[in-house]
Amino acid sequence: MQRLSARFLSALATIGALVLSGCGTEAGAPGGEEASLSAVGTIPAKKVMQLTRVHGETGMTLLEGPVFGESGDLFVVDVTAPEGKPKVIRVDLAKKTSRAFHTDGEGAYTSAQFSPYDGRLYLSDFAHGEVVSLAPEGGDARTFFSGEVDGARMNPDDIAFDQQGNLYVSDSRGLSEGAAHGRVVRIDREGAEATVLAEDLAAPNGISFDADHRGLWFSELTENRISYLRLDAKGGVTSRHTAVRVNGGIAQTDSIAVDADGNLYQGLHGRAAMAVYDRHGERLATVELPPRAEGLESATNVAITPGGTKAYMTVSGPAGGYLYTFEALAKGIRQSNGG
């Protein structure tokens, strides 16, 4: 077994505690009158394939950040993969085969998305407070952003690009202490300037532009709520409000995707399901796995085929890491492809 650094194991423990227990923090804030997750329409999901098994070195596996490349292949990150194991996996969905796309030492990558500016694949490294990028066909790893933002290092979780290629990051700083020190950070497309757009957040996780690129949706893991930031033409915040309260029980709000109709697909930590809302906050459906699917505890994220409605959801737990598929309510766009 390879030796893993204390810093890397600490980062994995923070992530893994949520994965394996489904909680590890206080329940979401009171308020809201939403029904339970099963009290609305159900969208059935079907198993596509298994991608990973629990790693002996880290004691877990966690798939995240599914994103389609130009070839039509799906790229997925394994957050808790140890050194030498695939940290980014390339999946040929037609053939149902997968292969390693990228590995390195101690990176703990929690999201992936292709930039509209330079076409490279960007990865958020939760453990080291960095955003790195790879060439579209792999290799040529570069550090896009590293260091402090307003005097504090980030724990970058999910990412989203605007149409000009500027990057927006959910910074889960404070997650391990259970403190509301999280932020939403904007990094210009050159990686030179970072600006805090929102702060004092409870472990922000999912982040996605709305269908018109007028604002950002972001979720807070330890408050089980989804908020909305209205932005101006220069990426500045003009308003912010809590938009949806998710009554998830032991499950917590993870990543967010948005389809062409503006519907939100909210991933869940602690339950292998996904809640679907319209842009006005109305619960539309719950994406559910078959009852026989055992050992799967989290449905973290989803990618919807660009221009189509076939959706691919990353699902993980003691049984391993899997891809499941379902029919989305509307077509896939950039906002439902990675992040």
Rank of each mutant, 00 (worst) to 15 (best):
Q2C: 11
R7Q: 09
L9F: 09
S10A: 13
S10Q: 13
A11Y: 07
L12W: 11
A17Q: 08
L20K: 12
G22Y: 06
G24C: 03
T25M: 15
E26C: 12
E34I: 14
S36G: 13
A39T: 14
V40T: 14
A45R: 02
V48A: 05
L51Q: 01
L51T: 01
R53G: 14
R53T: 07
V54K: 06
V54H: 03
G56E: 08
T61S: 07
L62T: 11
G69D: 04
E70Y: 07
G72T: 11
A81E: 02
P82T: 08
G84H: 02
K85M: 11
P86A: 04
I89K: 08
I89L: 10
D92M: 03
K95V: 12
T97C: 15
F101H: 06
G105L: 12
G107N: 13
Y109W: 09
S111T: 05
F114Q: 11
Y117Q: 14
Y122F: 11
D125Y: 00
D125G: 04
H128N: 14
E130T: 15
V132E: 10
P136F: 02
D140T: 06
F144L: 08
S146M: 08
G147R: 06
E148K: 10
A152D: 15
P156A: 01
D162V: 03
L167V: 02
L167G: 07
Y168W: 02
G178K: 09
A180P: 09
A192Q: 13
L197H: 05
A202E: 07
N205W: 03
S208K: 08
F209T: 02
D210Y: 03
W217F: 08
F218K: 00
F218A: 03
E220Y: 08
Y228R: 04
L229N: 00
L231D: 04
L231R: 01
D232S: 04
G235Q: 04
S239V: 05
N247D: 13
G248I: 05
I250R: 15
S255A: 11
G262N: 06
G267N: 08
H269A: 15
A272I: 07
R279H: 07
R279C: 07
E288K: 14
L289R: 01
L289H: 06
P290Q: 04
T300F: 09
V302E: 03
A303I: 04
I304M: 06
T305W: 14
P306M: 08
P306C: 05
T309A: 09
Y312Q: 02
V315C: 03
S316D: 01
G320L: 04
Y322W: 09
Y322P: 01
A330G: 03
A330P: 02
K331F: 05
G332R: 04
I333F: 13
